[in-house]
Design a protein around this nucleic acid. Sequence first.
DNA 1: CGTCCTACTTGACCACTTTAATTAAGTGAG
DNA 2: CTCACTTAATTAAAGTGGTCAAGTAGGACG
Lengths: 413, 413
Amino acid sequence: MLHNGAGRATAARMLDLLRTAGTLSRVELAEQSGLTAATITNVVRRLIDDGLVHEVGRESLQGRGQPRRLLELDPSAWYAVGIQVDRTTTTIVVVDFAGGRVASAGLRGSGTSGPEETVTTLADHVTDLLHSAQVPRDRVLGVCLVTHGPQDRERGVLLTAQPTPEWLEYPLTSTLSQRLGLPVLLENDATAAALGEQWAGTVATDTFGLIYMASGIGGGVVVDGDAYRGRASNAVEIGHVALSGGRTPCVCGNRGCAQAEAGPRTVVEQVLADEPLAERLGVRGAIDSTLADFERVARAWRAGDPAATAILERSARWVGQAAVTLVNLFDLDTVVLAGPAFVTTGPLYQRLILAELEERALSRTLSAPTVLLSTDVGTAAAIGGALHVLRTIPVDRDTLQHRSSAPAPEGEP
Amino acid sequence: MLHNGAGRATAARMLDLLRTAGTLSRVELAEQSGLTAATITNVVRRLIDDGLVHEVGRESLQGRGQPRRLLELDPSAWYAVGIQVDRTTTTIVVVDFAGGRVASAGLRGSGTSGPEETVTTLADHVTDLLHSAQVPRDRVLGVCLVTHGPQDRERGVLLTAQPTPEWLEYPLTSTLSQRLGLPVLLENDATAAALGEQWAGTVATDTFGLIYMASGIGGGVVVDGDAYRGRASNAVEIGHVALSGGRTPCVCGNRGCAQAEAGPRTVVEQVLADEPLAERLGVRGAIDSTLADFERVARAWRAGDPAATAILERSARWVGQAAVTLVNLFDLDTVVLAGPAFVTTGPLYQRLILAELEERALSRTLSAPTVLLSTDVGTAAAIGGALHVLRTIPVDRDTLQHRSSAPAPEGEP
DNA sequence: CGTCCTACTTGACCACTTTAATTAAGTGAG
DNA sequence: CTCACTTAATTAAAGTGGTCAAGTAGGACG
């Protein structure tokens, strides 16, 4: 090991900077990290020796002096897998070391299956996807399982008994890890999406909130580049913010929660309550096809259907109210929207949530609120999970040896 | 400067640990900081040389071996001043290096005076208080000004035009700093109180929320021992959480905010709406005596008055609802109550807020919620501000020289 | 074509920490 | 009573991760 400036944390920071910027010179790395050029030289040398980084030409001339040599991550150095599992949808993505999407697959959700069955299915699909994308398994750094609701990230276990009681405390990550022979992390869907947006560079600031809407509504907050996790990583449950004027009882025991008043399931049920409308839109209301039904409503809105529009606009206003609370409590000025429910409806929600923030957020006079759509609306969470793997699991000079000799570790380092 | 284990940050951490624990041995410092005994030896030696720490006997025998030598902060090494300014109350406290209260004074609030006048008054009172407590000014590390509402901590300026327009952007800390010849920090009242509670050891965890109620309602969150500050230090505006069922318009532009529905001013106004009741309690409703009036209602509750009880209980339930949102979004299980409004009503609010959390908080089944009363209900924010000074401003071997040669610096280091 | 400017590299040094002895100061069994 | 044992505190040497200052490298400009 070198004696100068080769700290593991520092190296990880350089990789992060390169991943978000795409390509940077050593000078820019020094500026952005606050370290000296000397340190950068040493750290970068090691990264190049390890095959993680390449020099890719020089910067187009900007005057006199020696031109800066541009650095870039080697995309094929490592890969990571993100799996977003929801009741009604599942998305698997494979991402290369630079964060680029290599392959992806959309499956039906976990439905009412037990965890054992789901894990087996997922493991098979991951194996297939890696194979068809010709990604060698020993170059896969790890897998991140991304789910909704309360979880124990340390132990890699869900703390919910839904959809079936066996899910509660089922050894999710360790089982999947064993099946795949790869490390498996667990992450909240909204937090994963937020981390993903950050690396994707969707937002200019490194402090923002994210609203994730799939079957339910979740929230994530990134402050100074780090996810807010709270006491036990179950923070930002924006779906259970009780809204002014709301009265609908929620599964959580409270009344008027955002999710109960405005979530996709509620939107679908409001359509179902109007039988001719439901008939017209083709909405059937099966519990496992909430998102498909929601998508039908979204398309009706796009086609100009006034009833569908009214229902969606009501939902968007409610979510906007929840966003106001999110913004007031976490002191944000930027909110990103992500998740399959926004694939079609994104612009509508974006407009109305922004309107609520501009009208009601406390800090609206101090700094104008911004609402952005994710760069990967539908797959943000899975991508974010995969990027989380790249960021979290250390890539040492000798990670490969470790990998081939010892069996795959599990969970956090 | 010594060459071994004398890091400034490390030294500050030792002081923090000693301040919260009161007295610790070197071994315990090593355990709690994760550093080795060797490092502790060096850091502690320097602290003793600088006169900040003393050895105070040995630990009562716990078996064989050499007994541990107990360490303690020298209370008289330094002092700090905390000033909590509200519209209707002002509290000044002087705290010694160990965090003990040396002197305190309660004044009327800033009322409708301009900032110039207020700063002059405060400077005079601080000077008087230091004099009467016989605290030498060159041993005062600094002052922390603690206020409600939006502020720019970096620049030491309030971002609100209340009560008079001159307050907006008035150079608050720099002016006070000049008057006193001491560094002056700015801090949010609820955050200061939360930091205070943490050093005071009120809470077992280092992750908790705090609700601060004076003329308004504010919130603070401490995560892993650090205050959550958000984008621009104006986070956790729990007074402006819109509550389920609320409709009252709030100054912030929203409806149904916790402060508008349940704040002390609203409580007083509800009493005023019932003329015979107001008469009976002696509530007059002058805008600058909100807290005095609130205190009258509180005493009526304690005396068993049913009308006063009903009004306060309604307020407490509302605040409880806001606490549910706080707890759900920040993933907390502990909430502390502080601020002058809780001096008498503390137990009532504590009981009802706990009831709301036990009924409605999302994580109630994962970990039982706790609601605690501050150890210094009325003066928590001022004490917290003073402790913030002790924690933030570095005490070097040569701070004293700097102090006497150069004029007092201003703001954060 | 040499000078100038900027990027990058090198080696000496520095602050802080750990590791491995070493010394200090007690307890309790015989 | 004293010697073996235990735990605390100190010391010196070595490791880690960086800075600083003085070089070297490579292209632009007059």
